[in-house]
């Protein structure tokens, strides 16, 4: 249980106070994963750092080439944001699939990535949108592709005290679709999630990115499948070949939510549906 909890309103304040705080610390943003673990007695740290009200993490802004999404912006706000709707349609499409609306009032994209769940819906949409993550450690920034931060189920590659400041998404007009197979109509962790972002003209695929969740140790990009579809016309034969390929690319497990074979089969089915919607 936390012995100390500190709240911060700016990154400057955070970096200034950090050296004086207990070393066994966790960053608290939305709390929808961290506090579940705390309530279940799974996660226990001496110190919680509340970064949910840090100004720099709560912005969505644009320049000519990119959209910046603060890591602490609540998902519910992203679902109403006109910049997100226009430039990051995969994320806009994904938000209503994300847990319940009360959890969307709390949860953040930064937390979704840091938690490194194989079923992370938001990460799936960001990766399909070719987003980069902006990391910050004592003011030193670096950016890298979103998926490079994932190392395995619940394991990320963040350095100690390196925080996720936000995400950078290139402004490029494209179509997007996010599909999720779940047991409960509106609320739950997916059996399979798929996000497809593509630039398609008259059924010719100029560019495409297919990303999946819940069917591998991390959210991952189906590169072989994307390469089959890129520079092709979406004919029945190509779609069939792509759906066969995607079944070989995934490595699902059987668990409480679904069986391995069913998940594998549904990856192909969902890809076909996604391509139909997007074409």
């Amino acid at each position: 249980m936390p012995e100390v909890i500190e709240k911060f309103y700016s990154l400057k304040e955070l970096w200034k106070k950090l050296p004086k705080l207990p070393v066994d610390r966790k960053y608290l943003a939305g709390g929808t994963d961290l506090i579940v673990g705390y309530n279940l007695g799974i996660s226990s740290n001496e110190c919680y750092l509340d970064i949910s009200d840090i100004r720099e993490l709560n912005l969505v802004r644009e320049n000519k080439k990119q959209v910046f999404i603060g890591a602490g912006v609540k998902l519910a706000e992203l679902g109403k944001n006109s910049l997100i709707k226009r430039w990051v349609p995969a994320l806009y499409d994904c938000v209503p699939h994300f847990a319940s609306s009360s959890l969307r009032n709390m949860a953040t994209l930064g937390g979704n990535l840091a938690n490194a769940s194989p079923s992370a819906d938001g990460v799936c949409a960001l990766a399909a949108s070719r987003a980069w993550v902006l990391l910050n450690l004592y003011g030193k920034r670096e950016s890298k592709p979103v998926l490079s931060v994932l190392k395995g189920p619940k394991k990320n590659a963040l350095k100690k005290d390196q925080i996720i400041e936000g995400f950078i998404v290139p402004k490029k007009r494209h179509k997007a679709v996010f599909l999720k197979l779940i047991s409960r109509a509106k609320f739950g962790i997916g059996k399979v999630g798929i996000c497809v972002c593509a630039d398609i003209e008259k059924k010719f695929v100029k560019d495409i990115n297919v990303v999946l969740s819940s069917v591998a140790p991390t959210v991952f990009e189906a590169k072989k499948t994307s390469s089959i579809l890129k520079y092709s016309y979406l004919t029945a034969k190509i779609v069939e070949k792509a759906s066969e390929t995607i079944r070989t690319e995934v490595s699902p497990i059987s668990d409480i939510r679904s069986a391995q074979d069913y998940r594998r089969e549904m990856c192909g089915v969902l890809l076909e549906r996604a391509l139909r919607y997007i074409a």
Binding site: Y48, S102, L103, N105
Partner: peptide, 23 residues
């Protein structure tokens, strides 16, 4: 205690949040 049931909801600055998942 896991955000699944909604019994703990309160309004925080006008937004419904699960109070069991907030410090």
């Amino acid at each position: 205690g896991e955000g699944e049931c909604g019994a703990c909801l309160v309004l925080l600055d006008g937004r419904a949040v699960n109070s069991c998942l907030m410090m």
